[in-house]
Amino acid sequence: MSADTAGPETLGSLSDEPQHQDPNSQQAKEIAGKSPLRIALGRLARDKIAVVCAVVVLFFIICAVFAGPISHLFGVSLETPLASERVDGLNNNMPKPEMGPPFGPFTWEHPMGVAPRTGNDNLAYWLYGCRISLLIAASATLVASVTGVVVGLLAGFLGGAVDKILSFFVDTFLTIPFLLAALTLAPILNERFALYDSYATIQKFSLVVVLALFGWMGTARLIRGEVLALREREFVQAARVMGMPTSRILFKELLPNLAAPIIISVSLMLPAFVAAEAGLAYLGIGVTDGVSWGQTILQAATPTYFREYPQYLWQPLLGIVALVLSLNLLGDAIRDALDPKTRR
């Protein structure tokens, strides 16, 4: 969202009201040049916690985007090794000492060690797990935001029967517990596509759909509320009077004014979806091909492994906690910056 299209000012020239100020004066330029978003950004940059969180988030994004090259750099890969080469079948299936901790010294071959029982390289799985996590969360956020914004816009602006029906759907979806819905849908979708070669991709795609399907209502509500307030504003009234088509009013006039609520809902959704993706994988109904932090946690959270090899659990767990925490804190900071009245 570029800052200069945001804000009610953009409609100034369309208004019949007389201009009290010379738009080219130095003072006016300074005000006009600082849209609410830019002001918020300025506030954000001064917030130390926000900056730290942004750096952490950036780190995870880099890990996700460059998972391949980074693994290559360390000489590790997702490739399945023969289990007996790396783990000891007669020692509780723990990694052999030469594979690094817990029974051996650190080795560059496997900087984060290998998984018990399978011998998979932890670093590679961690990096690709990070990619899956962010990819799914970001896609679901995108889909859910678009759905929520469209529904919210339509419901708020059109009002009447459309609003009633759409609000009913929002309420209905809010009544369906997300987890149960995901539980019901996952096997159905998976069974449908099991034979396809691109099954692993389809599974992720359907995961995005399930997450988005139960994540759009908050945005829709938020947007609807904003639109209800906005549509009584002069610039919208004016556009209507001028006979602007509804779609143009919605997307050219209203949408730019919704930047703040949209950013707020994205900031809420992103960490929630990261957590949900891993949570579903932990329950065994999300990603099932093993490359997910949630799945690693599921395998690591047994008494024996936790006692003898706790870092196997901590690696993915810290990944999720750090990512979700910094996304949440960053979101909080963004919300504060957008609305300085809120108190923390």
Binding site: P271, A275, A278, G279, Y282, I297, L317, I320, V321, V324, L325, N328, L329, D332
Partner: peptide, 11 residues
């Protein structure tokens, strides 16, 4: 408290 409640509940 903000820290704790930012951790996913199941973890």
């Amino acid at each position: 408290f903000l820290f704790i409640s930012s951790i996913p509940y199941y973890l």
